[in-house]
């Protein structure tokens, strides 16, 4: 489904991703954990084309977005191709980034109509279904400033899902929320996991990762240190850094 191979990325000479290689399979939920500044968010941003990598390859469903030329530099497909491939990917941000001038409904339907070319009634139908699933049917005409953080994030998830992406990425989806609102957002993500939605979640919610993820990736200083099932990683980490990180959380 998604293949990331040997990705390198640096900002102003500082390497933030070093030889990152991993894969996400269909129907799988992957949690990416690790200390702040370990490159987790940058990795998601690179996959979603918000940052450009220096070296490596990213392939979505067999479609190459970026590969490395013989001279060792990343070569991207043209913008049009990239936009088409990107529609297979959805990204949910830490701070929602809803469009404040659109109602909840229009936040969800704008891209399906004007990017995917759906009719308004098709887009509305999908939006209503998603709002129902998010428990927000009564909020369709509200504006983002009238929503709580938890509601905003659920609208943002619905907005990303409306384009029917094959993989949904969530970048610390609950980090801007207080514990009570975190629960309602995590509930929605669990629901999606139960429906076999392919997801990659950057998170600091260790219990959530343990409970929902099929696989956990631990990153530190721009590298994937260790990956495995939650059981393996939490109960029997192989690497010293993983062990220290998880010990820190258990205390």
């Amino acid at each position: 489904m998604l293949k990331v191979s040997n990705v390198y990325k640096s900002f102003d000479g500082k390497e933030v991703l070093k030889d990152v290689t991993f894969e996400i399979r269909k129907g799988e939920v992957v949690a990416i954990i690790g200390p702040s500044g370990s490159g987790k968010s940058t990795l998601l941003r690179c996959i979603n084309l918000l940052e450009r990598i220096d070296k490596g390859a990213i392939v979505v469903n067999g479609n190459v977005m970026v590969r490395t030329s013989d001279s060792g530099k990343a070569v991207y497909e043209n913008d049009k191709t990239l936009r088409k491939i990107r529609l297979n990917l959805g990204l949910v941000f830490q701070n929602f980034n809803l469009f404040p001038h659109f109602s909840v409904l229009r936040n969800i339907t704008e891209a399906p109509i004007h990017v995917a070319g759906m009719t308004r009634s098709e887009a509305n139908k999908i939006a209503f279904e998603l709002l129902e699933k998010m428990g927000l049917s009564d909020k369709k005409d509200a504006y983002p400033h009238q929503l709580s953080g938890g509601q905003s994030q659920r609208v943002a998830i619905a907005r990303a899902l409306a384009l029917k992406p094959e993989v949904l990425f969530l970048d610390e989806p609950t980090s801007a929320l207080d514990p009570e609102l975190t629960i309602e957002v995590l509930k929605v993500i669990k629901k999606l996991a139960a429906e076999k939605m392919t997801m990659a979640v950057v998170t600091h919610e260790m219990n959530f990762a343990k409970e929902v993820a099929d696989r956990i990736i631990f990153m530190d200083r721009g590298q994937i240190i260790e990956e495995g099932t939650p059981k393996m990683l939490f109960e029997n980490p192989l690497n010293e850094r993983t062990r220290a990180f998880i010990r820190g959380f258990n205390n």
Binding site: L49, L50, L87, F93, N97, A111, V115, R159, A160
Partner: peptide
């Protein structure tokens, strides 16, 4: 905010849109 551009870009909007 830059987040507005990022959200639009992730949803596949062109620069013009």
């Amino acid at each position: 905010p830059i987040g507005q551009y990022e959200a639009a870009s992730v949803l596949g909007f062109t620069k013009f849109q």
